[in-house]
């Protein structure tokens, strides 16, 4: 039985040692907001936060999680209030097909939490492990820059 903190909630679930966090989130906990595009750590679609740090859920074993708090895209909004990144992604069309969006948002959140006023180069570098095929990254970089302007309380 695995005990896991996800988005502020505690889950207890059966797992096998060879299930990754990606499978646990999607198949055990029903949190399908976390996507997968390769399952080999090459695309960034399954990026989640472990204690605020972006990691690839497809390469995290349950035994490696310990007591860390997992944040997924489902936990980004504060109740009914969207995170500024989510609003900025909406406003600027940074989510098209939406499949890379969860990973992008979480990589971006970690960046803004650490560096509230990033340069465009810093944004591009922070998102360099998240592949997007729709946007050309332009609106995504803009959206992260826009979210950085949000009132600090909003994130």
């Amino acid at each position: 039985m695995l005990r896991l903190r996800v988005n502020g909630e505690t889950y207890e679930t059966l797992t096998e040692s060879n299930e990754t966090l990606l499978e646990i989130l999607r198949e055990r906990l029903g949190l399908t907001g976390t996507k997968h595009g390769c399952e080999l750590g090459e695309c960034g679609a399954c990026t989640v936060l472990l204690d605020g740090t972006p990691v690839l859920a497809c390469l995290v074993l349950p035994d490696q999680i310990d007591d860390a708090e997992v944040t997924t895209v489902e936990g980004l909004a504060d109740g009914s209030v969207l995170h500024p990144l989510q609003e900025a992604f909406m406003a600027l069309g940074a989510s098209q097909c939406g499949y890379c969006t969860a990973g992008m948002l979480l990589s971006a959140k970690a960046l803004l939490d650490e560096q509230p006023d990033p340069t465009r180069e810093e944004i591009r570098a922070a998102l360099a492990g998240n592949v997007c095929r729709c946007t050309g990254y332009a609106s995504i970089v803009d959206a992260v820059a826009l979210a950085a302007k949000a009132p600090k309380g909003a994130r």
Binding site: G33, T34, V73, F89, S95
Partner: peptide, 8 residues
């Protein structure tokens, strides 16, 4: 469908 896309 933007809200659905950014909330997973």
């Amino acid at each position: 469908d933007a809200v659905s896309k950014v909330t997973g």
